[in-house]
C-alpha cells in the first residue's frame, strides 16, 4: 500500500505535465473541432456548428487525396526502410574492414533536423543546379524535374525519407539481432534448415516485437511528415505530395481555418490509432495468443 502511494508520488510530476501539455490541448482541439472558427471571416468568433465539420470532411476531395498520398507514402517508405534496414543490420552483424567508420557515417542522417534534410535534398534535386538531375542527365540522359513530374516528386520524397530514417531501423534491428540466443540457430542448422527457413521460422518470429515497435514508431512519424516535404516540394507538384500533415498546416496556418483544421487533426489522430491497432492485431496479437 505504501509502495503504491510512493509510486503515485513519483509519477505525479509526469502526469501533471502530461495533463497540461498533452491531454488538455487535445481536449481543446476536440472542442474547437465542433466549431466554425476563422479569425479572418466576416464573423471572426467561434461558432458551435455541431458535427458540420465532420460531415464536410467526408466530401472534402483535397483531404481525401491527402490521406491517399499519405497512406501510399507510409507504405512505400516504411516498407523500404524495414527491408533496407534489415539487410544493413545483418551486414553490421558481420565483421568487415572499416565497419566502425561505415556505421558512424550510416547513422549521421539521424542527427539531422528534418528541415535540414529537406533543404539538402532540395539543393540536390533542383533542376539545373542539383547534383542528382545533373548526373542523371549526363550519364543516362534522364531528365529529372520534381517541379513538373508528380511521380518523380513522390519517389524523391520516399527516397529522402528512406535515407533519413533507415539508420533508426538498422539500429533497432541490430539491437534485436544481437540479443537473439545462438542455440535455436545452431539446432536448426544441425537439422538441415536452409537460410530462408531459418529467417521465416526463427529469426523473424524472434525479432517480431522489435520489428513491430520500429514500424509503430516509423508509422507515426511518417504520418506526421511535414518539414522535409514543405521544404522540398511544398506539397506539389499539384497535390502530389500534399501529405495530410502539410494539408493540416495549410488549412490551419495560412488559411487560419482553426475549426475545420482541428477536425482534420482529430480524424487523423483517430486514423493513426486505428492503423496502429490493426498492425498490432495482425502482427503481434496472434503470437501472444499462441503463447497463452
Amino acid at each position: 500500500m505504501q509502495s503504491n502511494k510512493l509510486g503515485w508520488i513519483l509519477l505525479a510530476p509526469t502526469l501533471v505535465i502530461l495533463f497540461f501539455f498533452g491531454v488538455l490541448p487535445f481536449i481543446y482541439v476536440v472542442y474547437v473541432s465542433f466549431h466554425s472558427w476563422n479569425p479572418f471571416a466576416a464573423n471572426p468568433d467561434m461558432v458551435f456548428n455541431w458535427a458540420d465539420n465532420f460531415r464536410r470532411i467526408v466530401f472534402d476531395e483535397e483531404f481525401l487525396n491527402s490521406v491517399g498520398v499519405t497512406v501510399m507514402f507510409v507504405f512505400f517508405a516504411v516498407l523500404s526502410e524495414l527491408i533496407v534496414g534489415y539487410f544493413l543490420a545483418q551486414a553490421f552483424m558481420k565483421e568487415f574492414p572499416g565497419k566502425a567508420i561505415f556505421r558512424t557515417i550510416h547513422t549521421l542522417p539521424l542527427i539531422m533536423a528534418p528541415i535540414i534534410v529537406g533543404s539538402v535534398w532540395k539543393l540536390m534535386t533542383t533542376p539545373s543546379i542539383g547534383i542528382i538531375p545533373h548526373y542523371l542527365d549526363e550519364w543516362f540522359g534522364i531528365s529529372m524535374n520534381i517541379g513538373t513530374s508528380a511521380p518523380t516528386a513522390f519517389a524523391t520524397i520516399v527516397l529522402m525519407d528512406v535515407w533519413h530514417w533507415t539508420p533508426l531501423v538498422t539500429l533497432t534491428l541490430i539491437a534485436a539481432l544481437v540479443s537473439l540466443p545462438p542455440d535455436p540457430f545452431e539446432q536448426a542448422q544441425i537439422d538441415g534448415a536452409n537460410k530462408r527457413q531459418i529467417f521465416w521460422h526463427i529469426t523473424l518470429p524472434m525479432i517480431a516485437p522489435a520489428v513491430v515497435a520500429t514500424v509503430f514508431i516509423r508509422l507515426m512519424d511518417a504520418l506526421r511528415t511535414v518539414d522535409e516535404v514543405w521544404m522540398l516540394t511544398g506539397g506539389g507538384p499539384g497535390s502530389a505530395t500534399r501529405f495530410v500533415g502539410v494539408h493540416i498546416f495549410k488549412e490551419v496556418f495560412p488559411k487560419t481555418n482553426y475549426g475545420y483544421g482541428s477536425t482534420i487533426s482529430v480524424i487523423v489522430l483517430y486514423l493513426t490509432i486505428v492503423a496502429c491497432w490493426l498492425l498490432y492485431v495482425t502482427m503481434l496479437a496472434p503470437r501472444t495468443k499462441k503463447k497463452g
Binding site: 476563422n38 479572418f40 513538373t148 507538384p237 499539384g238 497535390s239 502530389a240 495549410k250 495560412p254 488559411k255
Partner: peptide, 22 residues
C-alpha cells in the same frame, strides 16, 4: 481584402493543377 490568405489558399490547389497540366 481582409480574406487575402484564405481565398489564396482555397484556390491555390486548383492553380497548381493547371500548372502541371492536370
Amino acid at each position: 481584402y481582409p480574406f487575402h490568405a484564405q481565398v489564396r489558399e482555397a484556390t491555390a490547389p486548383t492553380f497548381y493543377k493547371i500548372l502541371i497540366g492536370d
